[in-house]
Design a protein around this nucleic acid. Structure first.
Lengths: 340, 340
DNA sequence: TTGTACGCGTTATCAA
DNA sequence: TTGATAACGCGTACAA
């Protein structure tokens, strides 16, 4: 049976109230009393019961984090950043995977509410809106990361996707490409739109036409989705000489499809990814991509949540933070060749 | 303020005891009373407080999971399996990353003890032994996954690494290779030893000599470690025609080094990885590797823990489970060629 | 079938 | 500077 402050109180011949105070450095406790109690606590191997404390203080010092999958190459790093920031502040982390299943999401929100988490960080869900409402009804603050919904009614952290694809498109233009395509993800919402917009803006600014035929979309953001979109692309009579992909996995799928069809990357077609997942440096050819500062995004989300918890005013205006990444040039893109 | 069973009791004109029972389908409650109370609870949006419940029942229905890094390609999948099994049983999951820092590990163990988790699953640490002792002192059961320590004093789940590398080596022998090397990881303990042993056993059984010169080791299990070990290998006058690597990341590093040095994989040298991390299918050439059933390992660890929690006898003998994976043949290995 | 009274381990209020 | 007492929300032995 675990040691409690009452056990310590008995040995120290004081009240358990005094023990409670001594262990938390309450100012109104004599130094020597505190030291004596502290010593006894150490000897007994006392470990405070945060469950009981939470019941009284109405704060658990636990934050919930919801992701789609735990082994997601993107959000894995984000969660790493979250965890780092929370651990530094003495918070613990409940992690749960929704697997894009609304029922499961509900169950998770429910479980987290029952455990009285102090807040929830939701990483990229479509249906975040509804869940956030559920949480708000219960007074649990939420912070969203790269949320797909169009409206933004809660504190959120986003990567500046439009800026990213704008920069990437300019880079490809700088390499002499004029026929540049975009391989999107039909299953993503806001993110895909933002990336498409940045691409279009860069083309327009450079005086290049936005060819509708060069804008394709795969059914998902996996290698498979990239492969399908690429197959679509190969049907074109006049093909683009460079392609900007929704993300790295799609770029990898696109490259495989190209190579299988007998094309060389980047000689016959330049391919650019997005996100800079760690895998992207190890494929052949290594992927040119746009680095999202994933750990930083996670840290920022965690800190935003902690700030919210500090602020007493419950209904502060939602805070929105936009972070920018940087372009990483590798070998999957090259200057346009004559044959192109 | 959250709704409590007392609020419900007042409205339903019963005692909070009755509410408590009604909400948990206690047999000794009249059906209609239960239904009435349930309805009120729903209308009020009652969410039980598991913190208070845990204080009374001395069980939190929360399990702790410790990994080195959250975005680890291997343990990410293991945790996915753990989470799936726990979610199904209504358990929640505390996740923390140790980053191989003993101080941090201590802090994590401490935090988990304070939160009164029902058990802890530790994924691959060197110093697990000490932490397990700390937990046991506190009566918190632990389950280890692919633990690196040699002694096994707690319930553990392992992948049968010796079997894996034995199978892989036999596969290479079957392709006609006779000069087969092993690129190990000097930083791993038991796992590296087991894989080395399987390799040696397969060679011995086939009547092939175990050349000490063909056994190299990198300083870590990353691409960098594989690259360094490979550089070492390239110095040899007589080189192996096939290499078994400690894991996939080292194999990738080895391949890059070979390719940079002007060798072709698999024509000039076959390379085999281990683990089958998702990345391994996307590199060029796609990696022949040994698949560890990562999700299954996670599920098994979770279920083992749940069984332990069910069993009332605290000091049951530690349970040990060995899971086997399967060989995945891809394009990084080939039949030995004449020039070799 | 339902209710009373108490305890889980901690913090907070008030009084000494 | 310290202590007695109540409270947090829930579960349960015992009584009715």
């Amino acid at each position: 049976m675990a040691v409690t402050i009452k056990d310590i109180a008995e040995i120290a011949q004081v009240s358990h109230t005094t023990v409670s105070r001594a262990l938390r450095n309450h100012p109104a406790i004599a130094k020597e009393t505190a030291a004596r109690i502290q010593k006894i606590a150490d000897e007994l191997g006392y470990v405070p019961n945060t469950v009981a404390r939470g019941l009284k203080t109405r704060s658990s010092r636990v934050l919930g984090v919801i992701v789609r999958r735990i082994d997601d190459p993107f959000f894995g790093e984000v969660v790493d950043g979250i965890e780092e920031a929370l651990q530094a502040e003495g918070y613990s982390l409940f992690l749960a995977a929704s697997h894009r299943d609304p029922e499961r999401e509900k169950g998770i929100i429910r479980a987290m509410s029952e455990h009285r988490v102090d807040g929830v960080i939701i990483c990229s869900t479509q249906i975040g809106v509804e869940q956030v409402a559920q949480l708000q009804k219960f007074g649990v603050p939420a912070v969203l990361v790269n949320n797909q919904a169009r409206e933004t009614l809660t504190s959120s952290v986003f990567h500046d996707d439009e800026h990213g694809s704008y920069e990437m498109t300019r880079y490809l233009i700088g390499l002499g490409h004029t026929r540049i395509g975009y391989l999107g993800n039909a299953n993503a919402g806001k993110t895909n739109e933002d990336r498409l917009r940045g691409y279009q803006r860069a083309l327009a600014e450079a005086g290049l036409p936005v060819e509708e035929a060069f804008i394709k979309a795969g059914p998902n953001g996996l290698a498979e989705g990239g492969a399908l979109a690429m197959q679509d692309c190969l049907q074109l009579a006049q093909r683009p000489s460079a392609l900007l992909c929704y993300n790295d996995m799609m770029a990898i799928g696109a490259i495989q499809t190209l190579q299988t069809a007998g094309f060389r990357v980047p000689e016959d077609c330049s391919i650019a990814g997005f996100d800079n997942i760690s895998l992207s440096a190890y494929v052949t050819p290594p992927l040119t991509t746009f680095h999202q500062p994933k750990k930083e995004i996670g840290r920022e989300a965690a800190q935003m949540m902690l700030r919210r918890l500090q602020a007493q005013e419950k209904n502060a205006a939602p805070e929105i933070k936009l972070l920018r990444g940087k372009l990483i040039a590798r070998a999957s893109t090259a200057r346009v060749s004559n044959s192109n």
